[in-house]
Design a protein around this nucleic acid. Structure first.
Ligand SMILES: [Mn+2]
Ligand SMILES: [Mn+2]
Ligand SMILES: [Mn+2]
Ligand SMILES: [Mn+2]
Lengths: 220, 220
DNA sequence: AATTAAATTTAGACAAATCTAAAAATTATT
DNA sequence: AATAATTTTTAGATTTGTCTAAATTTAATT
């Protein structure tokens, strides 16, 4: 079956919200998609008839197995295009998301599988997020949130909590990107800010909000 | 301003029809877009309010200067993607058109200009059609229709009359592609079929319809 | 347990793009 | 020039996705 741009955006948004919320709510989804709760309800009814979500009115909703499959297809396309834009067209990593938001809806299977091959079957996108393969399987990341990293333990930045230009702009300014090696030198109780050390550069502090939006992997 | 997929498809279709028809008609356009005359009329009214077409009811229509500019933007995107699919992703030349039909509507200017650069500013697409530059300018081809080529005069295939899979399949079977050098050995009055010679291969005949859908450039 | 607050759904409307069937205008033919 | 044939436009529906405002249900608080 074939899905509309709107349907794909809803399905993908539900998938993302499910990752971090036990139950996804109508308001939450409306907020994520910059739309209204009433519109979400309308779409949920449609997605239910297409068997992409489980939905009982007033009692929440979640993706079906089929819904998850569709979501992973969209996410695969999104992240492959992001990789292409970054790697081949030399886009900055804070510019790729918006364009990929459109490209992800061009759904020729052949196009995407050939693109994947052309790119050398990349495993992660420019934000460190794993790219599903053509079966919908992807690496489960062993990343933890930076604010949970132990003091003085070396780690490597592996991902970001969201793709907002605001976040990515801040990271660019602080010279933090995927692969950056760092450790936490001190934790300030007052505001939970962290003193960070990157090799060969002076230490600096980052806010709690920023720490909560950075994923890291332990160094060996 | 930003245009919908439907609007872009209409504008592009009018542009193409204008190339070969003195006046484009409602029926012709409906046929081209696999839609109904009534739908064409509806869209023409809308395009008129957006100043993309001149239109007086019952008396025909044509693109405005602005309309032509929009058309060339869509055509630029279409042909650049076709080149990408063929050159980088190794699609056959009869497979690129359909996918490009979707990709052409992703309208990030930056994306297209960077893609153009990445591809090395190609001048023609896989069907031999010229690619507009970022100013909307493109090579005016000196091609002539194969059925007007003189006997025994060497020429090189430079384009095809349309992108139908049927035509491209036939050309693939006869081993004719962009760049193929050939000459006409004989013209049969009965059905206007032509005997064609390609170097190092036996001569063969092609139908009048095929000849009318092949563009060639004179060899020097 | 009753009341209040918050979340969710319905009712009704609207814009975009399409369609069919009927009416109107243009063009071709007697 | 009148009539017939063709083309084009209108009238009225339909589908998709969205919205606001009001009604309903669930959750929280007295
Ligand atoms: Mn999207
Ligand atoms: Mn990403
Ligand atoms: Mn198109
Ligand atoms: Mn082409």
């Amino acid at each position: 079956m074939n899905f509309s741009v709107a349907e794909e955006n809803y399905i993908k948004a539900i998938w993302h919200l499910q990752r971090y919320h036990d139950d996804v709510t109508t308001n939450l989804l409306a907020n994520q998609l910059h739309t209204r709760p009433a519109s979400v309800t309308d779409m949920l009814k449609k997605l239910k008839t297409k068997k992409l979500v489980h939905y009982e009115k007033y009692h929440g909703f979640s993706l079906t197995t089929e819904g998850k499959k569709i979501a992973l297809g969209v996410i695969r396309r999104h992240r492959l295009w992001e990789f292409f834009l970054s790697e081949k067209l030399k886009f900055d990593w804070d510019e790729v998301h918006e364009v990929a938001e459109d490209l992800e809806h061009v759904s020729s299977k052949k196009l995407i599988d050939k693109l994947d091959e052309y790119l050398g079957f990349p495993k992660v996108d420019p934000h460190g997020d794993p790219i599903p393969d053509n079966q919908g399987k992807m690496e489960t990341s062993s990343s933890i949130c930076l604010d949970q990293l132990e003091l003085n333990r070396s780690a490597e930045v592996s991902g970001v909590g969201n793709q907002s230009t605001e976040l990515l702009e801040l990271l660019k300014h602080k010279n933090i990107r995927i692969g950056t090696k760092l450790e936490i030198k001190k934790r300030f109780e007052f505001d939970n800010s962290l003193e960070i050390k990157i090799r060969n550069t002076p230490a600096f502090t980052i806010s709690e909000q920023l720490a909560k939006n950075l994923l890291v992997k332990h160094g060996k």
